[in-house]
Every structure is written in C-alpha cells, then in structure tokens.
C-alpha cells in the first residue's frame, strides 16, 4: 500500500507567506494608477506588469514551501515469495586449474576457462535463485554472499583468477564456509532447498575442516552437496612460467582427483557426484544440478520512500525566475479612476 506524507510538515507553514504577501499588498500596496484605455499598446514591450507575474510569485512561494516540507510517497513493499534455490558455488582456484585438458572450438583451454562460462550461464539461467560464490585454494573465502543480483555476480565470477589465493586445495573449508553463508542468508530457517555445488580438480590438501567433517555438517543441516570433478586423472598439459611469471611453454604433468572422496561427500549429503573430464560432461553436470528441486525463499519487506520535492521545486524556481525576470515591474494594485 502506498502512502503519502510530508517528512518536514512544519515547512508547509511557510506557504502562508503567499497569502500574507497578498494581504500586505492589498493593505499597503495601493498605488495611484490612472485609467488610460489602449495604454498597453503605447507602453513599450518589457514595461508591462501583468498580474500573472504576481500570481506566479505567490505560486512559487507555495510550491517552494511544499517542496521544503519534503513530500514523499511511501511504498510499502510486501514480502516477495518466490520459488528458487539458495545455493553456493564453491570454485577451486588452485594452480592445478591451469591444466589445459579442455577444448573449446578446437582450442585448448585450461580448466578455469572451461568452467567460468558454464558457471556464468548457470547463474544467468537461474534468475529466481539466490546464489553465492566461495573460492578456495589453500584457504577459502567468500567472493559473494547469496544474492539475487546476478549481473553483479557474473561480473565477480568473470574477475576470478588463479593465484588469488595461496595454493592448496581446502575442500573442507570451502564447504564449511558455504554452509555458513547459507545459514546466514536463511536467517536460521531450515535449509530446505539449499545446496552447494563444489567444483574442484583435486584432493583435499589443506584447510582446518576435513571434507568428511564438512560433509557430515552439511548432511546434518540437510544441505546436499553436488560435487563436480573438473578435468581428469593422469597426465595433462600444464603451462610453464619463468621467474617473471611469463609463460615459456607447456609441460605434461600428472594430476589426480580423489573421486571416492568427492563421491562420499555427495552421498553423505544427499547430493550427486559428477565426473566432468570434458566440456560436454561439465555442461551436463550443471544441467542435472539444474533439475534440483526448487525451494521457497523470501525477500524481506522494506519501506521505500520516493521523494517528490523535485516535482515541486523545479516549477517553483521556474515561476520564481519568470516573476522576477527583467521587465517585470513591481506590481501594484490598480485603482479605478
């Protein structure tokens, strides 16, 4: 329901200046004026003092007073109920994500480059969800808490790069941080409809919380974890950099994923495990995740006040300028001869 109010109602009293000025003009502003028919045709342009300028001045005073009282329309937005997910994307940014074992349009790309557009498309395709992002390597930190501002979120995902976090793979910490973000976003409500997408290419090597412990916690909170293993096991081309950080070549390097651990996490929490060793499999994994059950979430009601003072102040200043513009004589009260 919309409501109208003046934030500073006392300023409305200033509008009384207009009738006061009119009364003063009547009381003291009488001036001799002779009746001369056709005189307006003799008076050069610019010396006329039409009554309209006086009325414009009064109107400007009243409008300015009302503008100073800060009129507002209060828009009371009801709590919006929507169907959607509350989900956290936990994205691995360890250096192993540099492994170039993906292809797109015939070009070799690394794992992060393969994952990034899929994640962005995933975000775009879910306008009703609150989505947050946790990135992790040796440590985990929140890139974005759960939000419905998906444009902003896509930009943030576009900005992530390997090396932002010290190297390592803290899967347990990432899951724990994701759970914390979900709990905070839900405000203590139950976690129905909340889940975590864990995207990693390695085994847990660091962090304070073990993946199994984090999985137990997630299961306790009924938050399924969908684990996506990016890349494959075995040898994969890996870029070689010199001391200045310039890429100088590519060298095969062994990689190993711990699918059992990831599968255990998924099973413990009621999620699923996906092995995405190519682009199509990655896309398919996210498509399947997309089929998860939707959940209700609420947006807190808020009171939006729209100020209307500009609608009054602008015409008021225009009237004021016109009423005191050059050529406007001090208006006087006519007296019939």
């Amino acid at each position: 329901m919309d409501a109208f109010r003046f934030a500073e109602p006392l300023f409305i009293l200033l509008a009384l200046a207009a009738p006061a000025a009119a009364l003063l003009r009547v009381w003291k502003g009488r001036a001799e004026a002779v009746v001369v028919p056709h005189a307006a045709r003799w008076a050069p342009r610019g010396l006329r003092a039409p009554q309209s300028r006086t009325w414009a001045l009064y109107a400007a005073i009243i409008l300015l007073s009302l503008a100073a009282a800060r009129p507002q329309v209060l828009e009371i937005r009801r709590e919006a109920v929507a169907r959607g997910y509350d989900l956290m994307l936990a994205i691995d940014l360890s250096t192993s994500m540099l492994a170039e074992d993906y292809e797109r349009d015939g070009a070799v790309i690394n794992r992060l480059e393969a994952v990034r557009p899929v994640i962005q498309a995933f975000i775009t395709g879910r306008p009703g969800d609150r989505i947050g992002v946790v990135v992790f390597a040796g440590r985990a930190f929140t890139l974005a808490p759960p939000t419905t501002d998906h444009r902003w979120l896509e930009r943030r995902v576009g900005d992530i790069s390997i090396g932002m976090v010290e190297d390592g793979t803290a899967i347990g910490d990432a899951m724990g941080l994701s759970l914390a973000n979900l709990e905070r976003a839900r405000g203590g409500e139950d976690s129905t409809g909340a889940f975590i997408v864990l995207l990693t290419d390695g085994a847990n090597t660091s962090g304070a919380l073990s993946p199994a412990g984090a999985a137990a916690l997630a299961a306790h909170r009924s938050v399924p974890v969908f684990a996506v293993a990016a890349g494959g096991t075995g040898m994969a081309p890996f870029p070689v950099f010199d001391e200045q950080g310039r890429r100088v070549g590519t060298r095969p390097r062994p990689f190993s994923i711990d699918p059992e651990a990831l599968n255990a996490i998924a099973e413990t929490t009621g999620g699923r495990f996906f092995m995405a060793d190519d682009q199509a499999a990655l896309q398919e994994a996210f498509t399947e995740i997309d089929a998860s059950q939707a959940a209700e979430y609420t947006v807190r009601a808020r009171l939006a006040a729209t100020s209307l003072h500009a609608w009054l102040a602008v015409p008021a200043f225009a009237l004021l300028l016109w009423s005191i513009a050059p050529g406007a004589l001090p208006s006087r009260r006519k007296r019939a001869a």
């Binding site: 028919p37 005189a39 307006a40 050069p44 006329r48 039409p50 009554q51 208006s331 019939a336």
Partner: peptide, 18 residues
C-alpha cells in the same frame, strides 16, 4: 511617467515618455 490601467487590455502598465 505614470502607472496606468488599460481597461481594454486589462493590464496595469507604466507609461513613460520616450
């Protein structure tokens, strides 16, 4: 130099020689 009311135009004007 006088203030004048023109009943034909319905306006108050200042008449100034010039």
């Amino acid at each position: 130099d006088a203030m004048a009311y023109d009943p034909v135009a319905g306006r108050l004007v200042r008449l100034q020689d010039g």
